[in-house]
Amino acid sequence: MSTSARSEIFARLREISRKASAERIHQDRQALGSAPVPTPPAAEMCEAFLANVLKNQGSVDCVANRTEAVAAIGHYIYSHFRSHRLVAGNDPRLAAMPWRDAGVLPRFGRLEVGEPVALSFAQLGVVETGAVLTWTGKSNPAANNLLPEHHMVLVDTADLVPDMEHAWGRIKQELESNGRPRGINFIAGPSSTADIEGQLVYGAHGPRKWHVILMGKIPAEALSRARAIAAP
């Protein structure tokens, strides 16, 4: 790099920028407060999250515990691929699931070209956007989000946060205790494009299907209500 480019740009910006101490600048930013958040489609968090996932063209399953989760995962893979195989990141939470009970054969690691389905355990689910959050690392190689035909994501109801502001609150805890992950990925739907005559097509580059499994204490009517909200 030409160091003169850097110094010239900064010199120019120094001339134009307002003079203030770093502390003052931070105070000024704090004084601006935070942004308003859109009203969720339902007051109950699971219902609102599920409704937004459905609006994002995801498919969903609701399960109460890990045994039900592996059964639902096994059922999904078998019905789509007539197979019991699956790739999952090296996430201790996933390693501890009772796979054998459902006859699922997971391989832990990075998805290789040609493997059709991967499972991630989301760090968070964001109710506001119906997005799941993963960050890169051993427990979640980037390829597992991007390269499979179907991407399945398990979300614990305890990890639902109402909005992006709360999501950052939780992410910042991680950054402080474990350092900054290379990638922080909010995923809200199967890969899509409308670049040809505005017609929406799924599976542009990434997964064609995105399946979210919400696990935990979920009100009985949450899913049917969510479907009613998301129905066009």
Binding site: N52, G130, G183, I184, N185, F186, I187, A188, P190, S191
Partner: peptide
């Protein structure tokens, strides 16, 4: 309301 992929990269 949200794009499919919103990613933050650090290095």
């Amino acid at each position: 309301a949200q794009t499919c992929y919103t990613s933050f990269y650090s290095g």
